[in-house]
Design a protein around this nucleic acid. Structure first.
Lengths: 217, 217, 217, 217
DNA sequence: AATGAATGAGTGTTCATTCAT
DNA sequence: AATGAATGAACACTCATTCAT
């Protein structure tokens, strides 16, 4: 971050603005993509929200799709980073698992953009994620993290053996993700406000219970 | 303007074509909407796939959105109808529940359109489903079906009491739906082909196990 | 009107229905054309308003434009017929002229369709009227009617000589027609409700005065 | 976003093209709208005539209707501006009035678009003019101009008192406007070429005569 | 005589992207 | 680095008219 030592003052200013512009564009794009999906998002709207010129968007990101890919990558990196910070290895297995379920639920709740982004990407058969090497690396770390918890639980006798960490991972995500991504149709089908404060708390309890029953010896 | 005037069995000739055209349009629309979502679907493509004139589409369905609503409604009616036909009330509770989990999974597998349709509808905050009275009626029947199974299970001592049938319903759907809707990103993240025959069978076993552990006394 | 003497009973029925259908179509077309002009009128709307099948419209009138021509012809015949019925030849010249001004004004007021139809026809450079022989015949009678009044007025010493009956005709029409056809923009420009009862009465008085001052010796 | 930012005389380069494009679109739109009315006008044709991209039309004017409104507003401003430039206050009342009648006639002759535009707007019940504040301001100035002439004429004893300037205004417009807007049907009805040079001159003389007789003491 | 299903050419409008400065 | 004008292909939707019965 000692840019001034390397570059003349004029350049420094330009660089700082450039980074800020990129950041504003990314933020606006995340918002627009998550609201309307890749297809429904409008480049003009992103540029306007970012208070940037449309041309800049193309200058920095190449195209709408490449911008989407960057936004998607960042979203995956964000959640994986947050998961790593949970520091589950220092907790007893049961607590670690409960904490992960809770974290997953709360992350989805705080970041509904993540869910819409992933849905959009699956509508497009993951063509953008396929190109992202970094996401794969982060993902491996995540799976091994859950695997470690499982192994510790089996060793302590709390968890039953033979549980596939991938299946468990998927199920932990599923029971939160599905509830939230389908909150609109769900609220109609089940004739209750799935997003009411108490409903959310009840769901979290139900999910923790589901996972613990699933793994317990 | 009555329904019988539109589909009388006698006056085959005049109406047969109309009904056939409507059916072709609906089929093509289901295909196109599920492939590309509401926003990404193209009216021209639907008409072409249906081997019908675009004008007919508007004649019968009013607009792209109304067509989507009809398609969506039909999709919900189809799954609810199929569920009713399972005749779970004559099975022992455990078997009934297992059968429901299996059915849900297999229905999603056979009807990936249903999943994409629901995702699309949630992206639009369920604005179309809100207008559909019939779907609400069908949904109530479905929830009470699961509730009956739970009650029978509690009575027989196999299931523990106090399980919310809505939460259970959501979880049964979630663990299948999430796996399949995110099969593209999932296959990358977890570096395995989630759609391989064996993977699918394994997931079904895992899901049945999850649900039975969740409800068992 | 002794159709039954000429045609067998079965035919009579058909004829009566046919005439009724034609009449309903013409009425509906007059309404729709005068509301929206030739270009803005919708064939579907005409058929619906007439409670007739669209095909009938084409069967009887050939095309939208030919239908418009018929409607227009009828409109001209109607006003010319009404003018002839005024029987102005038996009134003193001044009274005859006043009565004509009054009649013209009131006819336009009662038949706003006539005005819109004529405007529409002029937008199309009178291409439909050109084809109508009958309108020309009726028009001649009308001009000579006004000419007779003028001549009688000159003979009696009330009117000054040398007034062109065509110019007078045009002016009589103009001062009523313009006021009414431009009633919407006029009400804005002059910031008063030109269609209020009193405004209409005032305008009629003003117009009669204008014409009498114009011709008086 | 300020007006001076859009048309600065210095920064010619960037804005000149934009302003020129806007001007070309407006000119083409005036032409197309006056030829075919609002409904009959084609956006494609306007863009083509303007040698501009259709997208620009929407960029600058929002929609076909908003473009129409701008064209209409400009037309009203143009005629009101021209009227103000007549400088009638420095002429004797009679001459001022004659000059106004002559001007009105000649303006309509030179600007047949104005007439068609106004007709189109009245077909749409003045919905666009209603929104235009500027036109109302200009109109007030116009009415008071005629009022001043009348008052001066009454004061000099040339004109009779009690003439409503609005009625006079309407009549001055009417006797020219009607003749010209209905020149196509009129030429058929009266079986004479209303647009022949001599016919036009005769009509102007007739109109001046009509107005002077109307106001003279 | 009457019907309603069907059509192709168009209608206003919007889009992601590029050009000139 | 940044801008705003410009584009062409596509978009949902509509029209007057004809076909099959």
């Amino acid at each position: 971050m000692t840019a001034e030592a390397k570059t003349p003052q004029r350049t420094k200013h330009r660089t700082r603005d450039a980074e800020a512009t990129k950041a504003r564009i990314l933020k606006a794009a995340l918002n627009e993509f998550s609201r309307n999906g890749l297809g429904g998002a409008r480049v003009d709207v992103i540029a306007e929200k970012a208070d940037a010129n449309k041309r800049m968007l193309y200058h920095y990101f190449g195209s709408k799709e490449e911008l989407f890919q960057t936004v998607l990558e960042n979203a995956y990196i964000d959640i994986r980073d947050a998961e790593q910070k949970l520091d589950l290895d220092h907790l007893p297995p049961k607590e670690a698992l409960e904490r992960l379920v809770r974290f997953t639920w709360e992350y989805y709740l705080k970041h509904p953009e993540f869910i819409t982004l992933v849905n959009s990407e699956n509508l497009h058969r993951a063509k953008h994620l396929k190109k992202s090497e970094i996401v794969k690396i982060y993902s491996r770390r995540f799976v091994s993290m859950v695997d470690t918890i499982l192994q510790r639980g089996v060793a302590s006798g709390e968890f039953r053996p033979g549980i596939d960490p991938v299946q468990l991972n998927i199920t932990i995500a599923a029971i939160g993700y599905y509830y939230l991504t389908n909150r609109f149709t769900g609220s109609i089908i089940f004739e209750r406000d799935l997003m009411a404060k108490e409903a959310l708390e009840e769901r979290l309890r139900f999910n923790i219970d589901t996972i613990l029953r699933l793994v317990s010896a």
